[in-house]
């Protein structure tokens, strides 16, 4: 079996947000203007979530955590969708069917990570910005929910390429845009079920943890905490 997973090393991550822009460009996310932003209407499939720690009056600590969809193995979002417009596939990618979604936003409220976004209005690209749109990813209509797809379209391309070259898919063939862009090389991607893959090795290390693990959602985005790695990877 294949289970696609992402590892984010918080020790390497510099909170530069390159992953955020990489995702927006890759996935044809419309630019939000000042008023959209002010009203909490901007769309991003990955964001840097700020966690302030430390008691009041002492030196605060700030942890900034890149937050894409966790592609939960037990996704609370897919269960609640009344029309099955969001679903987990056999390789663990939680997908979104824009053509079927009725825009009820039940999935957005059910997701404990709040990573889903809704298209409040028509996506707009002032001319000639639409020329930069990628042909690989459809433009979402107004009124539907969207979210990180693990750049699923890149899997299709990687598969085609491997097939054309007559070989199986290799670790690293399929990398989402954010992973590819990350300047600190803090993001990794691959098949968790392939024990030799980089993500499987990192996920087995002592620094690995998952967000809101106690909810039992079994995220497939695995974080590495700060600290010694305790071994070669």
């Amino acid at each position: 079996m294949t289970r696609w997973a992402m590892v984010i090393d918080l020790d390497r991550c510099t909170a530069c947000q390159a992953c955020v822009v990489a995702c927006q460009v890759e996935n044809n996310i419309p630019p939000a203007d000042q008023s959209d932003s002010a009203r909490g209407r901007g769309i991003s499939w990955i964001r840097l979530a700020p966690f302030y720690e430390g008691e009041h009056g002492t030196r605060p600590e700030l942890r900034l955590v890149p937050l894409p969809c966790m592609h939960c193995e037990h996704p609370p979002c897919t269960r609640v969708c009344p029309v099955g417009a969001t679903m987990i596939d056999h390789e663990g990618i939680v997908g979104q069917n824009y053509a079927r979604c009725i825009g009820c936003r039940y999935c957005t409220t059910a997701c404990p990570y709040t990573v889903r976004r809704f298209n409040w209005k028509l996506p707009e690209w002032p001319a000639p910005m639409e020329e930069g749109l990628s042909p690989d990813v459809s433009v979402r209509p107004r009124g539907v929910v969207e979210k990180c797809t693990f750049c699923h379209h890149r899997l299709q391309v990687a598969r085609d390429k491997a097939r054309m070259e007559g070989r199986p898919l290799r670790d690293g063939d399929y990398l989402p845009a954010c992973v590819e862009s990350c300047p600190a090389e803090a993001m990794f991607f691959g098949d968790l079920d392939d024990r030799r893959s980089i993500v499987a090795r990192l996920a087995a290390g002592p620094r690995a943890f998952r967000l809101l693990e106690e909810l039992g959602t079994k995220p497939k985005v695995i974080y590495l905490s700060k600290g010694e790695s305790g071994g070669d990877v």
Partner: peptide
């Protein structure tokens, strides 16, 4: 509920492709 839908035009998807794990259904 229909007012609240982003795509009220697709409200009949609930019947066409209803997903019975959803409490909304």
């Amino acid at each position: 509920v229909v007012l609240d839908l982003g795509r009220p035009d697709r409200v009949f998807n609930v019947i066409r492709s209803g997903n019975f794990t959803s409490p909304l259904l």
